[in-house]
């Protein structure tokens, strides 16, 4: 089977979304605006159905061995159905933010789930490229061990420098300026925004400090500089990979909250305004 280009798939998906969206919007306009029908029940059922289908994606991941569609098919459905749910939501609330406390909370939860989904879509399409192009590819779980290895190497370089040259200028500088940097993850947000300012600052400081060093110590400093760059790349990997995992800690729990709120909302609606009445 030939491979479908991503651009082609995206074009098809967007076209289908636009057609379905326009049809839904047209149907809603005819019913709501032209015929003065109550569309809230209809759009509510559709929205709830779509939300349940969207939530099943996470359930599918728990049972990957089941002979269902592939994860890629599920995600494509998740993306476009998720975008469509935004339109359904707007139709459901008739483009007016709800006023009741419960409905406001429900609407806010939906908005968080929707927006976090959009955010997730954007970062899962952008961050992997950045990760590929900077630093060594390290498994997330191995980053702390890798970080420790770099720090041990840095301290070994410093100790060897002290032993060989007898001078403590580099060791003092390391203790004062660099040890904290090597100890743990640094500049989380700067890395997310691809800012090189912290790295530039450290390297500039190291270069400036070289004027106080002898020839041997400068070599040590150069080795340290390489390790600083390695560590900085590792921090970049850590920041981006953390964000790629962290957004799901918002999206998924809020989805379950949404389903609970939506169930309560449905019960309340059916209790006080049965759609068959």
């Amino acid at each position: 089977m030939s491979t479908i280009a991503f651009s082609t798939r995206r074009t098809i998906g967007l076209c289908v979304l636009i057609v379905v969206g326009v049809l839904a919007l047209g149907a809603w306009w005819v019913l709501d605006t032209a015929l003065y029908e109550d569309t809230a029940i209809g759009t509510g059922i559709a929205l709830l159905t779509v939300c349940v289908l969207l939530a099943l994606f996470n359930g599918k991941k728990k049972f990957p061995f089941l002979p269902t569609f592939s994860g890629a098919v599920w995600l494509q459905f998740h993306i476009y159905a998720g975008l469509f749910s935004g339109l359904l939501f707007l139709l459901h609330i008739s483009f007016h933010w709800p006023r009741g406390v419960f409905e406001t909370v429900l609407a806010m939860v939906f908005a968080i789930v929707f927006l976090s989904g959009i955010f997730g879509l954007v970062i899962t399409r952008r961050l992997p490229r950045r990760l590929t192009r900077r630093g060594e590819q390290v498994l997330f779980e191995r980053i702390p061990a890798h970080r420790r290895t770099i720090m041990e190497r840095a301290e070994e370089v410093v100790e060897n420098g002290v032993r060989d040259s007898g001078a403590r200028a580099v060791a003092d500088y390391y203790e004062r300026e660099l040890r904290g940097f090597f100890l743990g993850g640094r500049y989380f947000f700067a890395h997310l925004f691809q800012s090189n300012a912290p790295r530039h600052r450290i390297v500039s400081s190291m270069e400036a400090h070289k004027r106080y060093l002898g020839e041997g110590e400068r070599t040590v400093m150069n080795e340290l500089r390489d390790l600083v760059e390695q560590k900085d790349d590792l921090d970049f990997q850590h920041s981006c990979q953390t964000l790629l995992k962290l957004w799901l800690f918002v999206h998924i729990p809020m989805t379950f909250s949404l389903l609970v709120f939506a169930a309560v909302h449905t019960i309340l609606v059916l209790t006080y305004r049965p759609f068959w009445s």
Partner: peptide, 18 residues
């Protein structure tokens, strides 16, 4: 393709589950 891989490890978990 690491330009598309989000490092989510769904592949590893699926392998483990199987």
């Amino acid at each position: 393709d690491t330009d598309r891989c989000t490092r989510c490890d769904d592949c590893v978990r699926a392998c483990a589950s199987t």
